[in-house]
């Protein structure tokens, strides 16, 4: 079985099968680039991911492992008519996987999924974050995400007014 070494920003190396790694768009490209530039077709590729630390990389690989037999979703689904992200739903495994994570970890995971081009993981993590927006007040959202209102003067009032254009109150 062809393997690849994936190294996290803090130097931890993960040895995974290339078949599994290629389910990440980014790793697939890296492996192919390595193949082209290497004379020895048997050489084991080594890929450094300088933006992802070991704890997060482990989670991504764990998720890939669990979902290794899923159909690979195209990174950009917009042109596709068929099933949307919402349709994909979450398995019980995914729910258990995400349950213990705090928002900071989820955000790191989102960034990792985005960077490594793992569409399925990006979808479920974004969906989790969405659930912290839906049904909350504006202030609660700002608090949950540590965001600050940066509206000046009457900008916020103007936005409120424009919102009323969209829907009858």
């Amino acid at each position: 079985m062809a393997l690849v070494r994936v190294i996290s920003s803090d130097g931890a190396a993960f040895l995974v099968s290339q078949r599994l790694a290629k389910r990440s768009g980014k790793l697939k490209t890296e492996i192919e680039t390595f193949r082209k530039s290497s004379d020895n077709s048997e050489a084991q590729p080594e890929i450094r991911i300088v933006t992802i630390r070991a704890e997060i990389l482990r989670l991504v690989l764990q998720w890939l492992q669990q979902h290794q037999n899923d159909p690979v979703l195209p990174a950009n689904q917009n042109e596709q008519d068929g099933r949307g992200d919402a349709e994909m739903g979450q398995s019980q495994w995914d729910r258990d996987f995400l349950a213990p994570m705090d928002l900071g970890i989820v955000m790191e995971l989102i960034l990792a999924a985005n960077h490594l081009e793992v569409k399925g993981l990006l979808d479920i993590t974004c969906k989790l974050v969405e659930s912290k927006i839906t049904g909350r007040t504006v202030d609660e959202i700002r608090t949950a995400f540590k965001l600050k209102s940066d509206f000046k003067g009457n900008e916020e009032e103007q936005t409120r007014l424009e919102n009323r254009w969209c829907v009858e109150n």
């Binding site: 974004c126 974050v129 504006v138 700002r142 995400f145 965001l147 600050k148 209102s149």
Partner: peptide
């Protein structure tokens, strides 16, 4: 505390039910 690329924030917001999206207009 995490810097999130615009496209990812967009993806997150796109998952918010349409009834709730107007409210997000007022966050920042």
């Amino acid at each position: 505390g995490q810097a999130i690329p615009e496209t990812v924030v967009e993806l997150i917001l796109s998952k918010v039910p349409v009834e709730d999206l107007l409210k997000c207009n007022l966050v920042c």
